[in-house]
């Protein structure tokens, strides 16, 4: 269960204030697939940052499962993040680590045993179709392959929630379709998926809940929604 209760986020740069999120309230049930849509600057990425504790809200309350995210200290944040898998538009892989090590890192950070790592990492890479490229460094992988490594890494600790922040923004249509299929499969297996995108075709093809945003405000929240923005 994810709860956003009257959440606002204001960034202050010098004396200039920018409202990134304005009094947002929504609840997401376990195992839901929710898409956040909106133009650049609408507040989608701010929601992601608040969910993973990368930023703290100026006002309101953010709850993920049993964690009150606003109240977590720097030392407590890793425990929340091990329950949330995140994938980004720019992949954010560790460039000095192989595909295997990138996925293994998330397990090692969570303190999992070497035996588990040796067993589950190849399985996860197999699931995303990259078992044959385990020893490759990110620079040796295509964009679609990098994003699949990122998905394997996000899923390796069996998180309750998977957040995909514009995951297909840098991919061609074929890879986009592959990634979306993977996200749907992950959701079917019981993980809550939060997707942010401004790709109309993706949203309209999903037939899942859509939260539309504009200028930091939630303007629409529909079950089986469509991409409708002015």
């Amino acid at each position: 269960m994810i709860i956003f209760q009257n959440v606002s986020k204001v960034y202050k740069i010098n004396s200039h204030e920018t409202v990134a999120l304005d009094d947002a309230t929504f609840h997401i049930k376990s195992k839901e697939f929710v898409t956040f849509v909106g133009k650049s600057g609408a507040g989608k990425s701010t929601i992601v940052k608040l969910l993973v504790g990368e930023d703290k809200p100026t006002k309101g309350k953010v709850v993920v499962g049993s964690y009150n995210v606003n109240k977590l200290t720097s030392k407590e944040l890793p425990f929340l993040r091990r329950k949330i898998g995140v994938i980004f538009q720019d992949f954010r892989l560790l460039m000095n680590k192989t595909a295997y090590e990138n996925v293994a890192f998330a397990m090692e950070a969570a303190g999992r045993s070497s035996k588990e790592i040796q067993e589950f990492v190849p399985q996860a890479l197999d699931m995303v179709g990259l078992k044959h490229k385990m020893s490759n460094f990110p620079r040796e992988l295509s964009g679609g392959e990098k994003q699949r490594v990122a998905i394997a890494r996000a899923m390796i600790n069996h998180p309750d929630v998977l957040i995909a922040d514009e995951p297909t923004g840098n991919l061609d249509p074929v890879n986009t379709a592959d990634i979306m299929k993977l996200l749907l499969r992950i959701n079917e297996l019981g993980t809550t998926v939060l997707l942010t995108t401004h790709n109309k075709d993706i949203v309209n093809g999903l037939n899942k809940r859509v939260i539309s945003m504009e200028d930091g405000k939630i303007i629409r929240d529909e079950e089986e929604g469509k991409y409708i923005l002015t």
Partner: peptide, 18 residues
Amino acid sequence: SSREEFGIMRLVGGSNFF
């Protein structure tokens, strides 16, 4: 030269010590 990696490691759940 590795500055971006620290943020990634934190987001993946790495503790500061690790």
